[in-house]
Design a protein around this nucleic acid. Structure first.
Length: 558
RNA sequence: GGCCCGUUGGUCAAGCGGUUAAGACGCUAGCCUCUCACGCUGGAAACAUGGGUUCGAUUCCCGUACGGGUCACCA
């Protein structure tokens, strides 16, 4: 007869608290009915990527929309994989995308009554529960010799598993070994401890995978989960828990009501259900978000950290405003978000009634075209001041030349950004701040380049004459109409059609039309065949700069 | 390989037993227009497959195929 009580004491003599003691020090939350408590629980093993932002936003919305609590817990249970600076990057990046926490491991500190929020600092808490499970015969220690342990550390588990195909025999064999390990005796424990052999704590799984547990996932609906029969590890040999154990203990203690995570966790659900049962905890609600995919050749693949577009820093570098990225994520998360946005173009996204029911069950494919379109819309609704501020901030970090130009004359730059902005049909020139420079470089003499030339089909004499005439006729005091009337007169003067309708009916009667005349001017003034409204452009450039540009162009035809 | 999840146009996605199967992005024709960017009006383009259940299946059930996930002292 095994004495579980004794084994537990041998293993954890320094743990004197009971689960009840721990529970008492972490009282339940006092929140209004229906308030959701959610959390983001990242592990600091790399830099922020899109796949973290995705569930982060769901967690944040669901909590704050229900007057609940959203907290940050750092799952730093794997010292080997920990990356320096990752936690800081995580917090900064989340803040950049307006993901704000009510409590947790915020900016280096611990903010909240359930502290600590870093799992590496909670070892004793987990051990209290582990010890209790051992006492109850629901978990047991599993020793490895020092050599075996060293070997274990060298194995590249990830590639090994990836390449392994599990035969039925192997599975049966592993199971047998597991059963043998359960029968560890008090003496064996004593001996191993005396030798200083490291040990892990495993759960004593009593599930039968043939039996299915009905389970309801908030996005996926009714599922059938096979019971767990695997004696998975609860505490690693360093005394730190695995994800599974930490999840059960922490989310219980911290009062998480909704566990929102990626669907890659679905297969582990059986373990978690078992743990909550063994520990006597009430199961939280679960919501498994479908994975974000990317196109690789002809098939879809999980968007992994290394993929282009996965690192959130890429979006910042390209100059996607944070608002655009959030907006795009919202469209991915709730299928009716775009309809709502059309109906409420100026409301903040936080006003949107986020609904779990409208979340996608199948994975979504990351689509740059769509992101760009969303971003263009977002930017088109910004004020010129906001655009100026954002572009300048971006340029200060990524484009010194542009930064210098913009900051040299704030009022001038704002006038440029005001073109076609604020009306019912705003221009949509920018998807990213990177687009800004090529768009407005001609406004600055230092950045001006002659990009396009007038087609050879036009007579150079005509071009010169048109430009000459404009020099004479241009009156910066003219309004848009008067300005255009002048161009029409020039057209008539050089044998081009001033009336487009007449031109279209008999194009052979003319050498060209007003649009062509405008084009001559546009190429002279902006160096490009395409630009925003020329009248506006000239007004912003100012009389002198406009005339200078035209003068220079004329010189080419002399 | 075992287990789990999924499958509506190129992409995202409404739909919840009877629909001309929405909408968005992209592509495309045209209109508007001093060019561009907008905007407007159109167009091409889809229910993976086989069997049930049913008067009737995109919708419900089963199989098949395909795709994805997962099987660590990682999360």
């Amino acid at each position: 007869m095994m004495n579980y009580e004794t084994i537990a004491e041998l293993l954890y003599p320094h743990i004197t608290k009971t689960p009840a003691d721990v529970e008492a020090s972490f009282p339940a939350r006092n929140l209004p009915e229906g308030a959701k408590v959610t959390r983001l629980a990242p592990s600091p093993t790399g830099f922020m990527h899109f796949g973290t932002l995705f569930p982060a936003l769901v967690n944040e919305r669901l909590a704050h929309q229900s007057e609940g609590v959203f907290f940050l817990r750092i799952e730093d249970t794997d010292a080997k994989r920990e990356v320096k600076g990752a936690e800081e990057d995580l917090i900064n990046t989340l803040a950049y995308y307006h993901i704000n926490f009510d409590e947790g491991a915020i900016s280096g500190g611990d903010n909240g009554i359930y502290a600590p929020y870093r799992q590496s600092k909670r070892a004793d808490i987990y051990q209290v529960f582990a010890k209790d499970l051992i006492k109850k015969g629901l978990a047991y220690p599993s020793f490895t010799s020092e050599e075996e342990y060293e070997q274990l550390k060298d194995v590249d588990k990830k590639t090994e598993i990836k390449n392994k195909e599990w035969s039925a025999e192997e599975v049966a064999k592993a199971k047998e070994a597991m059963l043998a390990a359960r029968a560890i005796t008090e003496d064996e424990v004593r001996n191993n401890l005396a030798k200083g052999n490291p040990f892990v704590i495993r759960i004593m799984a009593n599930g039968d995978p043939e039996k299915k547990t009905p389970f309801t996932d908030l996005v996926r609906g009714k599922l059938e989960i096979p019971e767990n029969d695997e004696d998975f590890v609860l505490l690693k040999s360093d005394g730190i828990p695995t994800y599974h154990f930490a999840h059960a203990v922490d989310d219980h203690l911290m009062g998480t009501t909704h566990v929102i995570r990626g669907e890659e966790w679905l297969p582990s659900l059986a373990k978690h259900i078992m743990l909550f049962k063994y520990l006597g905890f009430r199961l939280p609600k679960y919501l498994h978000i479908s994975q974000l995919m990317k196109m690789e050749g002809t098939s879809k693949k999980k968007l992994s950290k290394r993929d282009k577009g996965a690192a959130l820093s890429d979006y910042k570098a390209d100059g996607y405003p944070a608002e655009s990225v959030i907006e795009y994520v919202m469209t991915l998360l709730n299928s009716n978000y775009e309809d709502w946005r059309r109906a409420n173009p100026t409301l903040d996204y936080t006003e949107f009634p986020f609904s779990i029911k409208k979340m996608s069950v199948s994975g979504s494919l990351f689509d740059y075209d769509k992101l760009n379109d969303v971003s263009k819309n977002v930017i088109s609704l910004m004020s010129a001041d906001k655009v100026y501020t954002d572009v300048t901030t971006w340029a200060s970090e990524y484009d010194e030349e542009l930064y210098k130009a913009l900051s040299s004359d704030e009022a001038y730059a704002k006038k440029i950004f005001a073109i076609g902005r604020g009306g019912k049909k705003p221009r949509k020139d920018f998807a990213v701040w990177r687009d800004v420079k090529p768009y407005l470089s001609f406004f600055y003499d230092d950045l001006f380049t002659q990009e396009d030339e007038i087609s050879e089909t036009f007579d150079k004499a005509d071009i010169k004459k048109a430009l000459d005439l404009f020099m004479l006729m241009y009156d910066p005091a003219d309004d848009n109409n008067a300005w255009f009337e002048a161009i029409k007169r020039i057209a008539d003067e050089i044998g081009f059609a001033s009336d487009m309708k007449a031109y279209k009916q008999n194009p052979e009667l003319y050498k060209g039309n007003v649009a062509d005349v405008s084009m001559f001017l546009r190429v002279a003034v902006t160096g490009k065949l395409n630009s925003p409204d020329l009248y506006e452009v000239m007004k912003i450039l100012g009389y002198e700069r406009t005339i200078n540009r035209i003068h220079k162009a004329i010189m080419k035809y002399v």
